[in-house]
């Protein structure tokens, strides 16, 4: 067993320090070490996106990133999306538009959609589909997910306009 490495990072705004084996995958670090079980493991080969988290402003598949690579980084998971207990407009929109069924892909979808809207605040349906193409869902047929992201984009746009 290789020597453990010390890492420190910010997760959902909280400072975290840990000693881990270098081979520890980020998804296992989150789920096993930090008990943040929102992100899920779906395929293990970086195809399904269920493990998506936001690392330093990028959506990444945490099954294919080592936790040591997040050292010094800033991480957002689905658990950090509701600020001060208030749902993010994306979360509410997924409920409103029936954008989830079994819920297993949902955390990854939400975190990925969050970054998509940061980069493309007013996406077309086509841009939403391309933007979410790294996240697989078996239940919804995607249509209501696209609608949900559209709703959230509209709402965030209105909020911005009001400010």
């Amino acid at each position: 067993m290789a020597e453990k490495t010390k890492i420190s990072l910010t997760v959902n705004g909280n400072a975290v320090e840990a000693e881990i084996e270098p081979r520890t995958l980020l998804i296992h670090f989150l789920r096993e070490h930090l008990n943040l079980t929102g992100a899920h493991i779906g395929c293990e080969t970086s195809h399904c996106g269920a493990c998506t988290v936001d690392l330093d402003g990028r959506s990444v598949k945490s099954c294919t990133v080592f936790a040591v690579q997040a050292n010094g980084g800033e991480l957002l998971t689905v658990e950090g999306m509701a600020a001060g207990g208030e749902l993010h407009p994306l979360q509410q929109a997924f409920v409103d538009q029936h954008g989830l069924q079994c819920g297993y892909c949902t955390p990854g979808m939400l975190v990925r959609a969050y970054r998509l809207l940061q980069e493309t605040p007013n996406p077309t349906d086509d841009e939403i589909r391309w933007g979410l193409s790294g996240n697989l869902c078996r239940c919804t047929g995607y249509q209501n997910i696209v609608k949900a992201v559209r709703q959230a984009a509209d709402e965030l746009g209105q909020k911005e306009a009001a400010e």
Binding site: S46, S59, K61, R112, S133, G134
Partner: peptide, 9 residues
């Protein structure tokens, strides 16, 4: 190439 998440990496 690949998908949005992978293109970030």
């Amino acid at each position: 190439i690949a998908d949005p998440q992978i293109r970030y990496c």
